[in-house]
């Protein structure tokens, strides 16, 4: 029987949705479950999942583990893996674990798979290859096997809180030359990336091109886009051609940075709905759409890659005109 370690970092509060989903996946595998927590103070998080059926709760507490940093995160994860003697490690795919766990797998002579989108009862893992263009199902015999589960790919564990007795795993001071200074918002004026949003709004390069009157209206485009984001609380994505414009000295949208880029060399965010506007692209770039369930597009070209066969509805219309009215109706 596999010994399964659910690995999570905590900031002292309740666990995130992604962490609870990873716990749901881990507890559904049927092996002996061990919970491993790392953070400045882990007791509250341990209590919140006390009834998850874990045979043991292990914890690494301390100020050093409060901040995301490779050296300390890897040391904590390594200690938890060693003490638990886990053969399979399930963790949510956070930037923190994605940075640290591959190195831990190397230290433990194990294997690692990231961006896992499903876990079978037979311990088969599914993930995407070639930038979300093909999906593979794989198994491994090498142990320990670390799997980082993507968000919204499993049902979240939903049990009662209780009182967990967590065993503290002793840790020596971790030598590091890295000091974490804190978080910085992107260089755009406004926060436009909202991973939890119900809607992804994808803006294409058409917003910065000549319109029907023969002129470019980037200021108006920016106002419309930002107005829509404020009114709808959508997350903003951009096509590669749009975010690349800044490097080519062309008219740019100030609200858009490379962090917004979706598609082949950008991100493939997960949202229930997606609305693309003024987008034009070939199929490989449209992988930014892949994990959007319900898709609509406003485009002058009904045959573009973002529309025909990819969207559920495409409105052949001027996005400037449509979005101005949408904003008015939404009160933006």
């Amino acid at each position: 029987m596999e010994k399964i370690l659910f690995l999570v970092h905590t900031d002292g509060g309740p666990l995130s949705k992604g962490a609870l989903q990873a716990l749901g996946a881990a507890s559904g595998l049927g092996g002996e479950l061990v919970v491993g927590l790392a953070g400045v103070s882990t007791q509250a998080a341990a209590d919140s999942i006390a009834t998850c059926g874990a045979a043991r709760f292990l914890a690494v507490d301390g100020e050093a583990f409060a901040q995301p940093r490779y050296a300390t995160d890897a040391a904590a994860a390594e200690a938890l893996c060693r003490v638990s003697e886990a053969t399979v490690v399930i963790a949510p795919s956070t930037s923190r674990w994605a940075r640290a766990l591959p190195g831990v797998a190397a230290r433990l002579h194990g294997a690692v798979d990231t961006h896992v989108t499903s876990l079978g009862a037979d311990l088969s893992a599914t993930r995407w290859f070639y930038r979300q263009r093909m999906e593979g199902t794989l198994t491994r015999t090498q142990r320990p096997w670390m799997l980082l589960l993507e968000a919204d790919c499993a049902a979240a564990w939903n049990g009662a809180a209780g009182s967990a007795t967590a065993e503290q795993v002793p840790m020596a001071a971790v030598p590091t030359r890295t000091t974490v200074q804190g978080l910085q918002d992107s260089k755009t004026d406004e926060q436009t990336i909202r991973p939890e949003a119900n809607l992804l709004f994808v803006a294409g390069a058409g917003w910065t091109k000549k319109q029907a009157d023969g002129a470019i209206h980037t200021d108006q485009a920016e106002q419309l886009i930002l107005g829509f984001l404020r009114a709808s609380q959508a997350s903003l994505g951009g096509s590669k051609s749009l975010v690349d414009l800044s490097g080519e000295g062309q008219a740019v949208l100030r609200c858009m940075s490379h962090l917004n880029q979706v598609g082949q060399t950008g991100s493939t965010p997960r949202h229930p709905k997606g609305l693309s506007t003024c987008c034009h692209g070939e199929e490989p770039h449209v992988v930014g759409w892949r994990f959007i369930n319900d898709r609509r597009a406003v485009n002058m070209d009904a045959n573009c890659g973002w529309a025909r066969g990819k969207a559920d509805v495409v409105y052949v219309a001027d996005a400037f005109a449509v979005m101005a009215i949408v904003n008015r109706m939404l009160g933006g």
Binding site: S95, V180, Q181, L183, Q191, L259, N260
Partner: peptide, 9 residues
């Protein structure tokens, strides 16, 4: 890191 932000180290 998450949410379109940067971690400064």
């Amino acid at each position: 890191v998450e949410g379109g932000r940067h971690l400064v180290s």
